[in-house]
Nucleic acid binder design. Structure first.
Lengths: 167, 167
DNA sequence: CATGTAATGATATAACGTAACATCTTAACA
DNA sequence: TGTTAAGATGTTACGTTATATCATTACATG
């Protein structure tokens, strides 16, 4: 059998990763982006992004508000929604519609058409680039519509949970 | 001789159709399905389906409740949500996540992976079969997950609205 | 009749999201 | 440097969407 490095060329989308590195990389990435675009990475915005990237799973707006409150920020609903909207506009956060929740973008090279794979049991969510599982969006099949945004979410069961179900 | 379906071979997904026929066909289809599966197409369930197929556009749960009330049915929230869940289970209704709204399935041959195309301006919604715009869901790219359900929604602008924007 | 089951009815409340307006901070520039 | 305009945050109040829970009806079966 051939040995493969973790995740390299892997089709297993739910495998672990080096979260410490992921966190640091993501912060650096957003910092650089904000500087380049002359945007303000304010304490509030930074905190919201950190909360999301730290957990690395979808959080409801009100969960985020709780965390903000505990961290000494204001925690009335508009606070969270405004910051989330802002971060979404710039591609650092996505909304997972099926869960009414928000997740940090794990691939801010800003793939146009991200896909979310959601386990209904453990609620883990993986973001898959449009390389692996993608729509034929550029096909000539639809001629009277211009796509601006996509929501692609695949719900089902991950292999770990499925194996656990067999008893 | 094979009956030709509306829009067959067309790539214009927002074109009109014969709604009278559509309505009748859909009712017949659901009746047959319920008989075959020994399910109860109760007055309430029938009414909810009729409301949706009549409008042929996404309706919020509370809009449906209004209609139910006017038709003499009970109109407390769980009534609508229960019936909608039931109809969704059997593939006669879909939820459009991006609008928090429900729409009758226009193609109850039960395509596994329906796609909804949503104009952000006129809010028209077209259901596109997974023939035209589809995911490579059967690809070997994802090996540790079993897809049970998909949410695929394309938001943008239809050609009618886009032309209207040019001034 | 007693029991079971599927569907519906009703109340209350949880969860999610936004409008409107006030205040404070920052950046830009005369 | 002080003024100003834009950007960011704070606060109240409200609107919308969804569920938990329990009660009732209707009909079937032993």
């Amino acid at each position: 059998m051939k040995k493969k490095k973790k995740n390299e060329n892997s089709s297993k989308i739910f495998e672990g990763h080096d979260h410490g590195a992921c966190f640091g990389d993501a912060i650096t990435l957003i910092e650089d982006y904000f500087i380049e675009k002359k945007l303000q990475l304010t304490p509030l915005r930074r905190k919201v992004f950190e909360i999301l990237i730290e957990d690395h799973k979808p959080l409801g707006a009100y969960e985020i508000l709780d965390s903000l409150g505990k961290a000494g920020f204001s925690s009335s609903p508009p606070i969270a929604y405004r910051v989330l909207d802002f971060l979404m506009e710039h591609g650092f956060v996505h909304k997972v519609q099926g869960l009414n929740a928000f997740i940090a973008c794990s691939n801010p090279e800003h793939s146009h058409f991200p896909t979310f794979v959601i386990c209904r049991k453990c609620e883990k969510v993986a973001e898959v680039s449009d390389e692996k599982t993608r729509l034929n969006l550029s096909s000539p099949e639809i001629t009277d519509f211009k796509i601006e945004k996509t929501t692609i979410e695949l719900t089902g069961i991950c292999s770990t949970c499925e194996n656990a179900e067999i008893r």
